[in-house]
Computed example of a mutant assay.
Amino acid sequence: MRQILIYCLLSLPIMIMLGWFYFDKRKLKRKEARRAVLNAKPLAPEYLQILKTQYPLYSRLPEELQRKLVSHIQVFLDEKDIIGRGEFDVTDTVRVLIAAQACTLLLNRPGNYYPGFRTILVYPDTYVASSTQHDGLLQVTSTSTRAGESWHRGPIVLAWEHVLQGALDSRDGHNVVMHEFAHKLDEENAAMDGLPLLPTAEQYQQWSQVLSAEFAVQQRKLANGDDDVIDSYGATSPAEFFAVVTETFFEKPQQLQRHHPKLYEQFKQCYLLNPLEWRELNQS
C-alpha cells in the first residue's frame, strides 16, 4: 500500500503536466479552427469601403496581399480589444484602420497575431504620459506628450489623430501604428532589443551585422545633425531603430533601398515583402 501511495504521489505531477498539455493542445486547435473560419469570412462592405477610401496603401497592394490583409483584419478584430480613453468613441473606422495598419506587418510573416497582449487604448489626440527613473536613492518623475507607446507584455496606446494621419498618408515615413506594433514583433523573443523573430535561423547573423553597422551610422548622423531618410529617433536605441526603419520600409521603400540597400534587403527578408513592387509608388 505504501509503495502504491508513493507511486501515485510521484505520478501526480506528470499527470498534471499531461493534463495541461492536453488542455493547451485542445485550446490551440479551437483557436486555429476559429481563425480559419474568420480568414475565410468576407469583410463587411462598409469595412472594405473604409480600406479603399482611408487607407491608400491597401489599393497599392497586389490582389493576393489585399486578400491576406482582409483575412488578417478579421482575426485581429476578433482577438484584440480596442478601447477608447478620454471619452473617445471607438467607431468602425477606428477599429478597421488600426487593424489594417497593424496587420500590414503580418501580410507574409508566419506569426501569431501579436501574442502576449490583448488591449489597445486609443486617445483622441496626443496624450500626457508620466515616466519614473531612479538614480541611486533619487526618484525622478517626468511627463511627456505622446502619439503612441507599447508596454512590454502590456497594452498598446495610440492617439487617434496620428493613427488617422498615418493611414491617410502612406508616403511620409511616419506611421504610429506600424511603429508600435513593430515593437510587439520585437518582443516576441522575450526582449525588446531590435531583434525580431526571423523566418530562418540563417538570417540572424547577417541581420545582426547589417543592423549593428547601420545603427552606428545613424548614431553618428544624429550626433552631427545630419539628415537621413530614416528618422533620427531611430538612433536612440536598437529597439527604436527597428520600429523606425519598419515605418520607412513600408512608406519610403524607394528612398530606403537607394540610400541603405543592405538594410532594405534585411527588412525585405524579415517581412517577406518587397514594397517596391507595389503599385503607384512615385516617390522622389
Rank of each mutant, 00 (worst) to 15 (best):
149 E>R: 03
251 E>T: 11
121 L>G: 00
262 K>M: 11
172 D>F: 08
101 Q>N: 15
270 C>Y: 15
25 K>L: 11
259 H>W: 09
92 D>L: 11
145 T>P: 00
34 R>Y: 01
49 Q>N: 13
264 Y>E: 09
266 Q>S: 06
277 E>M: 11
78 D>A: 12
278 W>N: 08
259 H>Q: 14
274 N>R: 09
88 F>M: 03
39 N>G: 01
258 R>I: 01
259 H>G: 00
56 P>R: 09
201 A>C: 01
61 L>R: 10
212 S>M: 04
142 S>K: 15
94 V>C: 13
38 L>A: 04
219 Q>Y: 04
261 P>Q: 05
53 T>R: 12
230 I>Q: 09
111 G>I: 02
189 N>G: 03
159 A>Y: 02
38 L>R: 06
101 Q>A: 08
158 L>E: 00
199 P>Q: 10
9 L>G: 03
235 A>Q: 07
214 E>H: 07
13 P>D: 03
126 T>K: 14
158 L>K: 12
37 V>E: 15
10 L>S: 04
83 I>T: 14
274 N>I: 04
150 S>W: 00
196 P>F: 06
85 R>H: 09
55 Y>V: 03
134 H>G: 01
191 A>L: 14
93 T>L: 06
52 K>W: 00
178 M>F: 04
143 T>N: 10
239 A>N: 11
179 H>C: 01
101 Q>E: 15
164 L>Q: 15
153 R>N: 13
110 P>H: 13
66 Q>G: 07
245 V>I: 10
282 N>W: 03
56 P>W: 04
107 L>P: 10
96 V>N: 10
198 L>Y: 02
236 T>G: 05
281 L>N: 14
213 A>Y: 06
94 V>L: 09
107 L>K: 04
11 S>E: 06
164 L>C: 03
280 E>S: 13
39 N>K: 09
8 C>Q: 13
203 Q>H: 08
92 D>Q: 13
40 A>N: 14
74 Q>F: 01
263 L>R: 08
214 E>F: 01
2 R>F: 13
260 H>I: 03
56 P>I: 03
207 W>M: 08
145 T>L: 12
236 T>M: 09
244 V>H: 02
235 A>F: 02
26 R>N: 14
77 L>D: 02
62 P>C: 08
96 V>W: 05
84 G>H: 11
31 K>L: 15
123 Y>C: 05
180 E>D: 03
4 I>D: 12
28 L>G: 00
90 V>H: 10
73 I>R: 06
91 T>Y: 09
52 K>V: 04
231 D>K: 13
87 E>A: 08
